[in-house]
């Protein structure tokens, strides 16, 4: 959430703008030719956060590696163009972490130079042990981003989660953060994550899901839906590996039925069409890739039958 305009009373400027963006997305979807029977016309690619009702775009962005560019001015300016493209195309969630080196600093550098960042949904993490270090780290993050409050503060990889959850609950009550989340990217932590999801007052949960890594479909996604938790999907491209695997193959001819003209949109549409998913956060260092990723917010989404067909196709490659 922004440096200037968030208060915990009533709808925020960002929330209102978010709603307007949602209407825009609907209009675009409405203008598209009707999809075939296997594809449901996208109602809107904005998704509501179950606990607060605020809507955010179903595609956000990650910053692991891609925004960790150090002090180089040239590279920072290059990332500024990527982030500018993100907001020009209606971007919302930016996900980062103190673990990602200079990424938070670079995000702050870019945000301070971007005018149309009103749709920003700021999400970072606490990644340390102990209450005091956690508080200090979160304050540093706010300084780096140039924000007073965060839309979402997540506990990174469940590290010292009981300690941080206490802090986050009290910070949420005092309006210093708006949502609480918890993340993992390791299958072996899924049981611990499920315990937290079932027993703790978190708003968001973040884990890995993509067309080849679908373990989350068994327990994590259904549990999130049951408990009314917003779901952020990391590694939607398996850190880029999916492109190395699939790029040399053509898209199936029927990909056009769900508005896919490239692998990025094929892979992202698969992820965000799961009914329990709130948003995916692909990371990129390139403007052309950002355009491809954000273009996924338009056009129809695959239905359940089409999703099975998509899996069948990639598994046959």
């Amino acid at each position: 959430m922004n440096r200037k305009d968030w208060t915990d009373q009533g709808p925020t400027r960002r929330a209102v703008l978010g709603g307007m963006a949602a209407t825009g997305a609907l209009t675009v979807a409405g203008l598209l030719p009707p999809g075939p029977r296997t594809a449901v016309a996208a109602p809107s690619l904005m998704r509501a956060i179950p606990s607060t009702g605020q809507k955010i775009p179903a595609i956000g962005m990650g910053t692991w590696i891609t925004f960790n560019v150090g002090p180089s001015r040239k590279l920072r300016e290059a990332r500024l163009k990527v982030l500018q493209t993100f907001f020009d195309m209606g971007g919302g969630m930016i996900d980062s972490s103190p673990m990602y080196g200079t990424s938070e600093d670079v995000v702050g550098y870019c945000l301070s130079r971007i005018e149309n960042d009103q749709t920003l949904f700021s999400a970072t993490k606490v990644w340390t042990v102990s209450e005091a270090m956690g508080k200090r780290q979160m304050k540093t993050s706010a300084e780096l981003w140039g924000l007073k409050t965060f839309d979402l503060m997540q506990i990174h990889n469940l590290l010292d989660w009981e300690t941080h959850l206490r802090t986050l609950k009290s910070w949420k009550e005092r309006g210093r953060i708006r949502h609480i989340g918890i993340t993992t990217s390791h299958g072996r932590r899924h049981d611990d994550l499920l315990d937290v999801m079932r027993s703790q007052p978190v708003d968001f949960v973040q884990f890995t899901y993509n067309i080849l890594d679908r373990e989350a479909e068994n327990r994590l996604l259904p549990t999130a839906a049951d408990r009314g938790l917003a779901v952020i999907i990391n590694r939607p491209f398996r850190r880029g590996d999916l492109f190395s695997k699939f790029d040399r193959h053509p898209l199936p001819q029927w990909a056009g039925e769900i508005g896919c003209t490239n692998w990025a949109s094929f892979l992202l549409k698969f992820v965000i069409s799961h009914p329990a998913v709130t948003c995916a956060i692909p990371a990129t260092s390139r403007v052309d890739h950002m355009r491809e990723n954000m273009a996924t917010l338009k056009g129809p989404l695959p239905d359940a039958a089409m999703r099975r067909r998509m899996v069948g196709y990639v598994e046959s490659l």
Binding site: I65, N68, G70, S72, M99, S285
Partner: peptide, 16 residues
């Protein structure tokens, strides 16, 4: 798990 790209590594080397 390397948190930076080769491009960034070499850019930082230049600065260093």
């Amino acid at each position: 798990m390397i948190p930076f790209s080769p491009e960034v590594f070499f850019a930082l080397f230049e600065e260093y």
